[in-house]
């Protein structure tokens, strides 16, 4: 399970970074989304994915399950990161609209002055 998640997270990183290197703002936005999902998966994996672990919902009293459960704090991190990622993605899309309105094009050209 961890191996699969690690490979998947690596693929998401690679695709995200490749798209972010593009000059096209929409590709960059998609790249950012892939990257942020890759990171979320990475955080989940690095906190440990015990095989057959239960969700972190622990009942009260003696009857509570003693089975290993997934780390709730890592999930809280990811939940926060998802919200932030959404905000950033929204900003990127707004920026690409703004850029399109201002310059009539979708890609960012190189710098002419140094």
């Amino acid at each position: 399970m961890i191996g699969l998640a690690a490979v998947l997270s690596g693929v998401l990183f690679a695709c995200g970074l490749y798209l972010l290197l593009s000059r096209n703002l929409q590709r960059m936005a998609i790249g950012f989304l892939l990257l942020s999902n890759g990171v979320n998966l990475f955080v989940l994996t690095s906190a440990g994915l015990p095989a057959g672990a239960a969700p972190p919902l622990v009942g009260e009293g003696e009857g509570a399950s003693r089975a290993p459960f997934a780390d709730p704090l890592a999930q809280a991190f990811i939940l926060t990161a998802i919200v932030i990622g959404l905000g950033m993605a929204a900003f990127l899309l707004a920026l690409s609209t703004r850029h399109h309105d201002a310059s009539g094009r979708d890609d960012v050209e190189g710098d002419d002055e140094t």
Binding site: G16, F32, G38, V39, F42, V43, S46, A81, V108
Partner: peptide, 23 residues
């Protein structure tokens, strides 16, 4: 745009590193 993208990638790496440190 470079300001935005570089900082976004930086933040993504930061979060990944925080996850690894927690692990």
């Amino acid at each position: 745009v470079p300001y935005v993208i570089v900082n976004l990638v930086g933040s993504a790496l930061f979060l990944a590193a925080v996850g690894a440190i927690y692990g």
